[in-house]
Amino acid sequence: MTNPTKVGLSVFFVFLYLNFAYQLSIQIKKNDSKDFFHITVVLCRVLLFIGIVSLFFKLDVLGYSAYSKSIFTFYEPSHYALVLVAFLMPSFYIVSYKEKLLYFFILLCFGLVFPSVIILIVAFLSAFSILNKRIFLLSVIGAVLGFLMITPQTEQLLYFYERLNFSENTSNLTALVYMQGWYDAYYSFIETTGIGLGFQMAGENTETWINYRIYDLSGGYMNRNDGSFTASKLISEFGVLGVFFVLSYLIVFIKSIRAIKNGIRNKNIDFSMISNFFIISYVIEMFFRSAGYFTIGTLMLFVGIMLRYFGNAQINN
């Protein structure tokens, strides 16, 4: 059932996000790109420091210690990863190779110890985008060997097995919620013949076996409104147009990856690179884990798009 207040507030926030992204992209463009890259390095180091402290101490502040896998100021590792990735990517680009490898090692530790599949995806996305093929391959081999050495027959190994078990028989809620995102997108598309359920109406399609399974295991429906990841929410709510949005993002994502590889060869540090990093970092929210439309990742995506397609016009005006 449509909630006019929710839809109205959401439309307001869309315009607010677009305006803020527009103004921020202008300010970024007016200043030295190197300064902005260095700001991302500082923010990335602060977030990594928070993660390291949370590995060893449960800070009993604002109730975060009540959550078994909390990272201070974040209730769960995936929330931490979604904020970190936006600043990690440009930071990872300009720091020394030794620091790149240190970042990668720290993220692997976070992913294995907390544990968190999303943090591991962030680590490998960063390494794949920026490290050369030989170093990336060695890093992957080292990570796999480290994983096998650290987690044989432990709870962490069981955790990763359960999170990556996408069979119909799984009882892992995280895996089921992720599968639910694809099921809801598909059935919403079919039920509305490609029109979509409407803005902020994700989860209003007819329940299927996976929704009931989650309800039986948890006592309630989980993550139906946010779709679990943005692609699911877009397709559920906008149908064919949502598919177009997702495919358009994939095309821009591939172009950004290629541009970053070229930028590494040419030692390019400019606003186009900032744009590329903001765009590719959003792939986590688009296809793996999201908290809805209104996140820091979405804001940085808008900034990246405006830097790429409207940057020169903004400065000229």
Rank of each mutant, 00 (worst) to 15 (best):
V46Y: 06
V46W: 03
V46R: 00
L48Y: 03
F49D: 00
I50K: 01
I50F: 03
G51K: 13
I52T: 12
F57V: 15
L59S: 07
L59Q: 10
V61L: 15
L62R: 15
G63M: 11
Y64M: 11
A66E: 14
A66F: 08
Y67A: 15
I71F: 06
F74T: 10
Y75P: 02
S78V: 07
H79L: 11
A81L: 13
L82P: 00
L82Q: 08
V85G: 01
V85C: 09
A86Y: 02
L88W: 07
M89Q: 09
Y93H: 06
I94T: 12
S96Q: 03
Y97G: 02
Y97F: 05
K98T: 14
E99P: 01
L101N: 01
L102K: 09
F105R: 00
I106R: 02
I106A: 01
L107H: 05
L107I: 07
L107V: 05
C109Q: 05
F110H: 06
G111H: 04
F114Q: 11
P115V: 14
S116N: 10
V117D: 00
I119P: 04
I121Q: 08
V122F: 07
F124Q: 05
L125P: 00
L125A: 09
S126I: 04
F128H: 03
S129T: 09
I130K: 06
L131F: 12
R134T: 14
I135C: 10
F136V: 01
F136C: 13
L138W: 08
L138M: 09
L138E: 11
S139M: 05
S139E: 01
V140I: 15
I141F: 11
A143Y: 07
L145N: 10
G146A: 12
L148Y: 10
M149N: 04
I150P: 00
T151L: 02
P152I: 05
Q153Y: 09
T154N: 08
E155W: 09
E155T: 09
L157R: 13
L157G: 07
L158K: 12
L158R: 10
Y159I: 08
E162M: 04
E162A: 08
E162Q: 14
L164E: 07
L164V: 13
N165L: 12
S167Y: 12
E168T: 11
